[in-house]
């Protein structure tokens, strides 16, 4: 399955297959993937609060490749730490709100991938690598009890991202992500007078 088909199946069906060998993505394959990601973005922003960040094709494509390779590495266990470092390259461009949202189109499946990797040792290089990526992309990694290390200020400064981030925190009951004052304030505002109904066991974290 090529990269564009992989993304299509991931979004539509939640089930994917990957090639059993590591191959380079062709320029045409990458171009087709951007088209698929753009369509995916156009649909997804209909559910984003307010005005969603613009489409960042570079970030979206990077995340698509990252998830594809991560699935391959989870399946092809003969590949070692060196291949992980080579194939799961970090994002090397400046991070903006558009970057976070563009990458999220595929990185939102990172918690599911980590969940699938639970059968692996916690010290497995792939698991540690995925956890590190989850820390760096907090918008896409709520609900897996992993602290955020960067990017929160960008999320907080964008109303659309902030509300979506808060929606995800509430949906996954991720109290740990409420440790930043603006995020906590947004969570409390979202719950309003119905905190006991909407999040019955919600306890304010000590800041």
């Amino acid at each position: 399955m090529n990269l564009s088909a992989f993304i299509t199946h991931l979004v539509r069906e939640g089930q994917v297959t990957v090639a059993s060998n590591i191959h380079l993505f062709s320029p045409q394959e990458l171009q087709n993937t951007i088209v698929v990601l753009q369509e995916y973005y156009d649909n997804d922003i209909q559910d984003m609060p307010g005005t969603a960040p613009a489409f960042d094709s570079n970030a979206a494509l990077w995340a698509a490749r990252y998830i594809y390779r991560a699935v391959q590495l989870a399946m092809l266990r003969q590949l070692g730490e060196e291949e992980i470092t080579t194939l799961l390259l970090p994002y090397d461009q400046p991070v903006t709100a558009a970057t976070i949202y563009g990458a999220d189109l595929c990185l939102r499946y990172l918690p599911d991938l980590l969940s699938l990797s639970k059968g692996l040792s916690p010290e497995d290089p792939l698991v540690k690598h995925l956890q590190e990526t989850a820390k760096q992309w907090p918008f896409s990694s709520t609900g897996i009890n992993i602290p955020a290390t960067q990017g929160i200020d960008i999320i907080v400064s964008n109303p659309s991202l902030l509300q979506t981030y808060v929606d995800r925190i509430i949906a996954t009951r991720d109290t740990g992500r409420c440790n930043v004052q603006p995020v906590l304030a947004a969570v409390k505002a979202s719950l309003g007078n119905y905190a006991e109904v909407l999040w019955p066991d919600f306890k304010l974290p000590e800041l």
């Binding site: 609060p49 109303p159 808060v166 979202s190 719950l191 909407l198």
Partner: peptide, 8 residues
């Protein structure tokens, strides 16, 4: 709905 929390 434009800016409402999803949970609402």
């Amino acid at each position: 709905a434009e800016t409402a929390p999803l949970i609402r």
